[in-house]
Design a protein around this nucleic acid. Structure first.
Lengths: 179, 179
DNA sequence: TGCAGTTTGTTGCATTTGCAACGATATCGT
DNA sequence: ACGATATCGTTGCAAATGCAACAAACTGCA
C-alpha cells in the first residue's frame, strides 16, 4: 500500500475539520446576520451570559480562544456597546467583563435561532447516535489528553459531572484553580 | 429557561470545532515539523498523491479549500520544489499540477506518521464507535446538504459507493461533471 | 466568424490569526 | 521590605484568510 492509497476523504481529522467548518459557517450566517458577530465574539458573549463577570484570562481558558483573540473580541464588542469592561477593584490587572443591556438584548435575539439550528442537526440523530457521539468525542479527547504534544483541553470542555450539589450559581469557571 | 442557561460546552458545533482544531493542531505538528507544511499544503500534496495531475479548480473542489488558498498553496509548494506546475496543452487556462520527486519523498516521510496518529485516535474507538461515527457524520452532512443556506459538500466528501467496477485509476475526481 | 458569456487561476485588499514581546501589576521568598 | 518571578491584558508583526475583481483563455450561439 503506497502513499498514494491515502485517502483524504477517509481521514478522520480531515473529515472532522470539514464537517465542523461547514457547520460553523452555516451557524455564523445566523448570528453573523443579526449583528456582525464573529465566532470569537459569539463565544465570548455566550460565555458572559453564563458567567456574568469574568476576566480575559477566564474567557480564554474556557472557550478555546487565544488570549489575544479574546482581547480583541472584547474590544470590538465594547466598541459595539455589547459589553462593558471594568477594572477589578481587588486586582488592578484583571478586567471585569460583562454584557451590557444591549448585549443581553442581542443574545435574546441570537441564541434561540442558533439553538434551533443545533436542534435541527440533532434531530437527524437518534438517541443512540447522540450517546455514541458523546462517547466518541470524549474518547478522542482523552487520546489527546494523554499526549503531551497535544494542546491541553480547556477545563470547561471536560465532561461535566452530573451536577451533584448545585450551588445555584453557574460557576463552571470557578473550578479553575489549577496553578 | 433563560439565555444564560445556554452552555457552550454542550453545544454541538462548538464541541466539534474544539475537537477538530485540537486534532488538527496536533497533526500539523507532525507534518509541519518535517517540512513547514500548512494544512492547505498538506491537503494539496496528499490529493496530488492520489490524482497525479490536476488543476487548481479540481483541488479546490476536492479538498475543501478556497480557490485562492489552493492557488497560493501551490505557489508555495512550487517554490519549495515539491510540486510542478505545467500548463495543460489542450486548455491554456488549466494548470497541470503534480508532485515532484522531492514532493514524493517528502510524502514518504510524512504520511506514515500521520496515518499512525490517526490510528492512535481510532484505536481509542471500538468498531461500533467507528461505525457510529461514520453514520453520524454522514447524517449531519445530510442536514447541511438539505439546507440551501449551507455551503455545498465537496464531491469527494460524499460517501463513497463501495467501489463497484474499479477502473484501476484512482479517479475520485472524475465524477466531477456537475456543471 | 464574431461577440456575449463562462471558466480558470492570480492578485489586491481588508481582516483575522497566532505568537512573542511588552508594560503594568501582583505574589512569593527570603 | 524588597527584589526576583509570575500573571494579566494589549499590541506589533508577519503570515494566513476570504472575497471580489481581474486578465487570459475557452465556449457557444447567432
Amino acid at each position: 500500500m503506497g502513499i498514494d492509497d491515502f485517502r483524504l476523504a477517509r481521514f478522520l481529522p480531515y473529515r472532522l475539520a470539514v464537517l465542523s467548518e461547514r457547520i460553523s459557517r452555516r451557524l455564523s450566517a445566523i448570528y453573523g446576520a443579526e449583528a456582525g458577530l464573529s465566532v470569537a465574539e459569539w463565544r465570548v458573549m455566550v460565555h458572559l451570559a453564563r458567567c456574568r463577570e469574568v476576566s480575559v484570562r477566564e474567557i480564554h481558558n474556557c472557550v478555546n480562544l487565544d488570549k489575544s483573540r479574546v482581547s480583541r473580541a472584547v474590544t470590538r464588542l465594547e466598541t459595539a456597546g455589547l459589553v462593558q469592561k471594568t477594572g477589578s477593584p481587588t486586582d488592578q490587572r484583571l478586567l471585569a467583563i460583562s454584557l451590557s443591556p444591549e448585549g443581553w438584548h442581542l443574545l435574546d435575539r441570537i441564541v434561540p435561532p442558533t439553538v434551533d439550528y443545533e436542534a435541527r442537526l440533532l434531530a437527524a440523530l437518534s438517541d443512540a447516535d447522540c450517546a455514541a457521539l458523546d462517547t466518541i468525542i470524549e474518547k478522542l479527547h482523552r487520546v489527546l489528553d494523554a499526549d503531551p504534544e497535544a494542546r491541553p483541553r480547556s477545563v470547561l470542555d471536560l465532561p461535566q459531572p452530573p451536577d451533584a450539589g448545585d450551588a445555584s450559581a453557574p460557576n463552571d469557571a470557578t473550578i479553575d484553580r489549577t496553578p
